[in-house]
Simulated scan of single mutants.
Amino acid sequence: MKFHKSVLWLFVLVAALGGLSSGPATAQQADPPILEYPQTMLRGFVSAEFKRPGGDCRRICEERSGCAGFDFSSSTNMCRLYAAVSAGQSEFSYSAGTRNRIAGYRDPANLPPPPDAASWHFAQFTGVDLYGGDIVPKGLEMNDPAMCASACERDNTCKAFTFNGEQNRCFIKTGYEFVQSAAGVTSGMFFRAKPAEARVQLNAEWDLFLMSDLPGNDLGEVPAQSYDQCMRRCEGNASCGGFTWVYFSRQDHCYLKYGTSLFPSRTTKGMVSARKSNRDIVPDFVRPTPNRDY
């Protein structure tokens, strides 16, 4: 660990002044001990810098009474402790924490909201596909839904995600068009609500079956160059209860199905099927999440 010269006198000065205050004492009493600033690099008097995991960086600062704040670079694993913090600036690969609010900068992410104020929450659903709104059309290769949720949380334009466990693909989204139930799929969304009203319920309009056919009950074949086009063809037909879209052949085919007795059959060929549904779905859990208004 490397300490910068002349830091001892500054520790004494800060202690004598009772810390650097940017607001009334009454407002600070309710603040957490360390105020969190994601995607932020600090400016000020650096007292020490060293390579440690991010959690160690925060713990060491918390244990040192003279530490006014810290920042941590996820790209270099470099932790910097500050004897005084003068400013903050947005930096994607950094996270920071301070004992006092940074004057003239955005609010910390972990401030407790006023009792009746709307704040951000996160809801996660098992067996749910949120269709549309993809930021990356082909998705991102990932191994589990937790990684997908983290990718969405790091991107402030992301308001929802769907993780396809069969293909190990993560689709982060600015929003979504409609909801489908689907086995092996996990989705999540960020939403604003008052703490006492932080509830969300989705309505699944379709049951989605990946790598599956709906054998029999053929209503007819219609042209469709995408799953979305095939779905819209069925949606606009009162007799259609579901469809199978075939994409392994040279020309894509859309087979409409009639009735409600439609049951999937797994296949190794490039097919995806869906049937009309009308089912309310509640989340696995809802939890508060840091501010996403910036």
Rank of each mutant, 00 (worst) to 15 (best):
K2F: 14
A16Y: 01
L17D: 07
L17M: 14
G18F: 04
A27D: 15
D31A: 09
L35D: 05
L35K: 06
E36G: 00
T40K: 01
M41G: 08
L42F: 04
L42G: 00
F45G: 06
V46K: 04
A48E: 10
G54H: 00
R58Q: 11
E62R: 11
E63Y: 05
E63P: 05
G66I: 06
A68G: 11
S75R: 11
A83N: 07
S93D: 15
S93G: 10
G97S: 03
G97I: 05
T98C: 00
D107S: 08
P108D: 02
A109K: 06
A109E: 07
P115M: 06
Q124Y: 09
Q124G: 07
F125H: 02
G127A: 01
L130Y: 00
L130H: 02
Y131Q: 14
D134A: 06
V136D: 13
V136F: 14
V136Y: 14
L140N: 08
E141T: 15
M147A: 14
S150I: 13
S150V: 13
A151P: 07
C152L: 05
D155S: 12
N156D: 13
T157S: 13
T157C: 01
C170V: 06
Q180N: 15
V185A: 03
M189C: 03
F191E: 07
F191V: 07
E197L: 11
R199L: 12
V200Y: 01
V200Q: 00
N203I: 09
N203W: 02
L208Y: 08
L210G: 01
P215C: 12
G216P: 10
D218K: 00
V222Y: 07
A224H: 09
D228C: 01
Q229T: 10
C230R: 05
C230F: 03
R233L: 14
R233N: 15
R233I: 07
C234N: 04
E235C: 02
E235Q: 12
S239D: 15
D252I: 00
L256K: 02
L256Y: 05
S261W: 09
S261F: 12
F263K: 15
S265M: 13
S265W: 09
R266H: 10
T267D: 02
T267M: 06
T268H: 11
K269P: 00
G270H: 03
S273M: 06
A274H: 06
K276M: 08
S277C: 04
N278D: 15
R279F: 01
I281T: 01
V282G: 07
F285W: 12
R287Y: 00
R292V: 10
D293P: 01
Y294S: 12
